[in-house]
Amino acid sequence: MAAASMEGKGAGRDSTEPRPTRDSRSLRAADVTAAERNAGAARVERRGARWRHRHAPAVFAAIGMLALWQIVVAGFAVPTYIAPSPVQVLQVFVEQGDILWLNFWPTLLEAVAGFALGNSIAVVLAVWFVHNRLAERAFYPIAVFVNTIPIIAVAPILVLMLGNGYAPKIVIAALICFFPTLVNMVRGLKAVSPQMLELMRVLSASDREILWKIRLQSSLPFLFAALKIASTTCVIGAIVGEWIGSNYGLGSLIIEATYNFRAPLLYATVILGAGLAVAFFVTTTLVERRVLKWKPGAVF
């Protein structure tokens, strides 16, 4: 009966409310017309100008500090083994690039594997905790305890247990990622509005349906906040792991360069490690932007 009567729909469409789509649609159409194509180019230009306006100070400041560093080191004749000049560091990248890259890949691999392992376990555990109060009460305090042990103290234990290969480094990187993700994910999974849960009850939805349809999605802003932290700490974890017992990787290169007073190589290694962490962070941010197109944190 309703299907037939619904044909008389739209009788009372109101015109008082704003209809943003209509505007944006005509805008989209306008983009396509050849006459307006210049406007699109101008917009790109404007965006470039805004980018320059926003980031130019940081770029100039960085260049200024590097120049100052160069001047101080050269002017006061600081020995290279105490502090190399930026130019000397740059020379390492050019002349000893092969050593740097050879040691870069293992660290990258360990960081990525640790990131994946630590965060996966944290997410699975968070889902378990949210559905099982007893499990949360039993294991949450243990997770907190493990997190309070300094990573530098755990590392030797893991090397003893897992040997000298990739395994201990991956585990250390995973361990350092694990805790922030666990805490955030538990909060995120619980951050569903009580009203949404009542709606799901009225619909007689199962816990599994609530998890897949509601909780996991609404926890994503929390998860990404944690992943951004993890994206830089997993590199630290891998490097610390390599310090303890390894003859490859950026961590081992740092130790080697330090003991041999090869300061330019040390600096170059540190910069490469930092670059890895930044690249990881930027990647995570870009993925977040793609995944969270809906306004994060907003609840309706």
Partner: peptide
């Protein structure tokens, strides 16, 4: 049931 808030999935 219709709640006071729309309770939509964002």
């Amino acid at each position: 049931f219709v709640f006071q808030d729309a309770t939509l999935l964002p």
